[in-house]
Each structure stands twice: as C-alpha cells, then as structure tokens.
Design a protein around this nucleic acid. Structure first.
Lengths: 199, 199
DNA sequence: GTCTATACCATGATAGAC
DNA sequence: GTCTATCATGGTATAGAC
C-alpha cells in the first residue's frame, strides 16, 4: 500500500484502515465520510491522504487484502482423502474464517458495486477464484459419484450464500458456540449435495 | 404513501418510486442523489418533494411495500399435506418471487442499515415475520420427525441465505431456466434438512 | 507527519414564480 | 404540478505552515 513519502509512522496507516473497515462495514462505503474516518483515528481529514491516494483505494485495499488472505488460508488447508471430507473442511473453514472477520467479509460481499471498473474487475477475479475452490470440490464429488448435484455452478453459489449468511446473525457470546455452528453448517452443506446418508 | 396535496397525477408518484428502486438497487441508497432520481423520471429535484417527505421515506416505503407484498403472497400459498411439501413449496416460492423482483429484494436485504431507528424497527419486524414463516415449517417437520435439524433458528437463517443468494447470479435468459433453478434449490433445501432420501 | 485552512463541488431540502 | 433559484451543509481533496 503506497505511502507517499519515506515516512516513519508504522501505526497510523493500519489504524486508518481499521477505522475505515469498521465504519464501512457498519454504515456502508458511500455513507461514510473521510472526516468520520479521520475522527475515529484522531487525526484531521487531510492527514488521511498521506496514507491513501483516495477513498476508493482505501476500499479496494481492504477488499484485496481480505480476499488474498482468504485464498492463502484456503490454499494452506491440509489435504483430505475424499470429496466429502474436503467439503466438510471447506464449510467449517469458511464459517470459522467469516465468523472471525465479520467486517472484512461484509465489505467484500456488499461493496463491490462501489468499486470503479478497473478495481471491480480485480476484486471480482479474486472472489471468483475463491468460488472456484468450492466448485472444484463439488465437481470432484460429482465425478466420483458421491455428490448429487445437477449443476455445479448453482450448487457453488447456493452453498457459498448459505455459509456466508452466518455473518447475518452469529454473534460472539450468543446462544450457540462457534464450534457447534461450524458443525451444523457443515452437516447441512454435506446433506444438501447428497453426501451424507440420512439417519 | 402521503402525497402532500390533493393532486391529480397518478403517474409521477409511481415513476419516482420505480426510479428510486432501480437506482438504489444498482448503486446503493447512500450513493444515489435525489437529483439522479429526478433526472431518471424527467422532473426537477424539487418536484420529488411533492411525492415524498424526504429521501429516507422513499427507501422505507419501498422496503415496506416489498415486505408486505411478500408476506401477503406467502399467506396466500395453498395448504400442503406435509412439512416436506410445505418446505418445497416455500423454497420454490421464495426463489421465484425473488427472481422476479431482484431490485426490491436487494434493497430490502442490503439497505436496512440506512434506515433510522424507528423505520428500521418496523421493517426489521416485517422481515422477522417472513423468517418465522420458514421457521414454523422447519419446527413442524422437526416435531413430526421428518426433518433432522439441531437448531431451527440456525437452519432458518441458513436456508433463507441460500435461497436469497439466487439473486447474486441468476439472470433472465441465462443458462438455466427459472423452473429448473426453483427445482434445484428446492431439492437442495429439502436435502439439507434431511427431508429427502438419498438416491 | 500532522496540522489548519480552504478550494470547489454535490447534497438534501425549501421558496416562490408560473 | 413543475419549474428555477437558492440555502445551508457537508463531501473529497489539496496547499502550505510548522
């Protein structure tokens, strides 16, 4: 992330990005002003431009960092013996990762329309790569005769939407524990593609 | 919807709401100006205030109308003999209804945070009533021993998110026909709660 | 590296002519 | 019923002092 000068501050930049992430997630990119971000950090609005060329880049950087981290974490998952195990692993991972980063996730899914074309294309490509991780699993299970899915792209979109929806309601310290939530979602995901025998 | 005077125009009001719905869905409430809405209708910005007291009410009215229509349509669904049939009917209905009204749906799900507290509470209550329709079905299936769901609230949120996600990718005239999409989603929904035997 | 000050523009909303 | 004109406010972003 381009800082404009050979500056010393290693702390203000991250704080600006944290404040922006928090405010964008809560109120939406378009509804948040640079003045609000600056106020949350405790600097003047003008000072933000030492750390970002403009508001748009602030958003795009947040989204890119999130999606690149997500992809890296996905790539680091340990190999699994079967498509069903891979899907269970993916579902648990997705739930856990999203529960831990509600703001970044929310922004990445909701603020695509506020990106300008060039940055939209870049971010959309990253998101698409993540969807492909799941679709690969589903296709492998379909080829192996273990999943029953008429259309792998539709199933991918359905599962991603189902799993990501956890951010709409899950709250730390609520009725259900994180581990239980992961288990139940993974179970529903497996059953939805016919990968689990009925009781 | 309160028009300010005993006016004659039966056409401009609806056109304003249609333009607002279209623009809010495409760019987001906060990113759309009253001038843009007026331009799309072909009137001046000031003229909008003959039909709405302010921008906020324009948004709240769109959301209220959508959710009330949705609830009315849900209530009008023909009775079904079993929880599984009710769930299949709900899934197909939800998919079809959402496919036909992508803009209204998108706004109702995305712009809650741009409502002020009083209107938020009202709209949120309507949304909650719709979720309860699904949760009632899931609980009935659970009581009857036909659904396998550890937590009915979680399952409700998971299914609503999965089904609503259709608006993220489905496009008229695309690869899949509407009827096929309804059928596949309904099948995944039933399987996810253990209501369909595996092949 | 951060500040104050400010340029410049778009916003939501209103007043009053027609 | 719609227009033009306008208001006060707040938006992004920059300039230049320190």
């Amino acid at each position: 992330m381009a800082r404009k000068t050979g500056s010393h501050s290693e702390i203000t930049g991250p704080r600006i990005r944290a404040a922006a992430q928090h405010l964008f997630a809560r109120h939406g990119y378009a509804a948040v002003s640079m003045r609000q971000i600056a106020a949350e950090v405790g600097v003047q609005a003008g000072a933000l431009y030492l750390y970002t060329p403009d508001k748009q880049s602030l958003l795009a950087d947040l989204m890119r960092d999130h999606l690149e981290s997500l992809l890296a974490a996905t790539a680091a998952l340990p190999p699994q013996p079967s498509p069903a195990d891979r899907l269970a692993q993916f579902a648990r991972f997705h739930i856990g990762y999203h529960i831990e980063r509600p703001d970044a996730v929310f922004i990445a899914y909701m603020e695509l329309r506020n990106l300008e074309p060039a940055q939209f294309a870049e971010i959309e490509a990253l998101r698409r790569r993540y969807e492909d991780v799941l679709e690969d699993i589903l296709r492998a299970g379909h080829r192996a005769g273990q999943f029953s899915i008429p259309d792998s792209k539709l199933a991918t979109m359905a599962l991603i939407a189902m799993l990501t929806g956890v951010t709409n309601w899950y709250r730390e310290g609520g009725r259900l524990r994180r581990h239980d939530v992961e288990a139940i979602y993974a179970d529903m995901a497996l059953k939805s593609v016919g990968a689990l025998a009925q009781p």
